[in-house]
Amino acid sequence: MTLFDIIFTGSEQALEACKSVLEQTIKEYGENEKVSFPNTAYSLPTIYAATGQKINTLADLKGAIGVIESLIVKEQNLEKALNAGLATAVAAEVIEACKYVGGKNPYEEPCVGFIPDTVIRSLGVPLVTGDIPGVAVVIGEAPTAEDAAKVIKDYQSKGILVTLVGKIIDQAIESKVKMGLEFRVVPLGYDVTSVTHIVSFAIRAALIFGNIKPGDLPELLKYTKERVPAFVNALGPLSELVVSAGAGAIALGFPVITDQDVQEVPMNLIVQKDYDKLVQTSLEARGIKIKITEIPIPVGFAPAFEGERVRKDE
C-alpha cells in the first residue's frame, strides 16, 4: 500500500468509527442533546476553527460528518493526503466530544482529556518566550518502560511540554515519571482519539494568540506551523489510524518522528530507531533550539520542576 493509501484507509476507519459512535450517542441521548467540552469558549475547537461553525447539539454534530467525508478524497497527492489527515483529526474530535455528552467526565486520573482554555492561556506566555521551547506529543508504546522514561525525562529536562497518549502513560507511571501540568508531563488518554485534545490545544492557541479567524483554515495551518512548536513521536506498531492522525499533525506543520519502518517524508515523517537519538532528531526536525545549556546535575534541573514541592519521604 502506498503511504497515501495507508492514510486514506486510516481516515476512512476514523470516519466509520466516528459515525457509529455518534449514532450510538444519538440513540442514547437523542438528537437535541447538548454537545460541548468543559471550560472552553471555542465549542468543538477543531471544527470551529476549520469551518467557523459552533456545534451545539448532537444534530449539529451529524453535520460535521459531511465535513469529514468531504475531506477524504482518495487521489494520490499530498494535498488530498493532508486533507484526509485533517479528516481524521475532525473525526477524533467528534468521537471525543461524544464521550462528554450528558455532562459526563469521561477521563480520570492520571489522564486529563480535554484541556481547558485557562490552561492554554497560562501556557501561552512561556510558549511565546521560549520557556517552553516545544510541545512533544508522544503516542503509543516504547519497547521498554526505561526507554519511555528516558525519552520523557529528556524532554522534561529541556523544559518541553510532553503530552502522552496510549500505553506510554502506563510506562511512564511504571518508571515513576512525575506527571501533571506542573511537571509538564500531561497524559491525555489511552485511546488514540484523545490526541485530539492536544490538537485542539494548538488550534486554540492559534485562535487566542494568533487572532486567527475561525473558518480561515489556511491561516490557521500557517500559524500552527510557524508558531506552535509541536511535534509527534509515534512509538510502537503503527495502525493505519495512527498514520492518518500523523498526516493530520503534518497538515498542522508538526513533524512526526517514529521508531517504526515507514516510508519517510523529508522533514515531516522521520524514522529514528535509536532511542538515544530520538529527542535530538525530534528537536532538529521541529527546528527547536534549547535556550539554556543543560546542567548535568543528578536531579532534573529545569522549569518543569519549579512547581515541585519536596515531599517528606523524598
Binding site: P266, M267, I270, Q272, Q280, A285
Partner: peptide
Amino acid sequence: NSTAHPSGTVKPLADA
C-alpha cells in the same frame, strides 16, 4: 535530519 539520515545522497529525493 543530521541525527537520522546520511548526508550527500539522493535519499530525500527518493523519499519525496
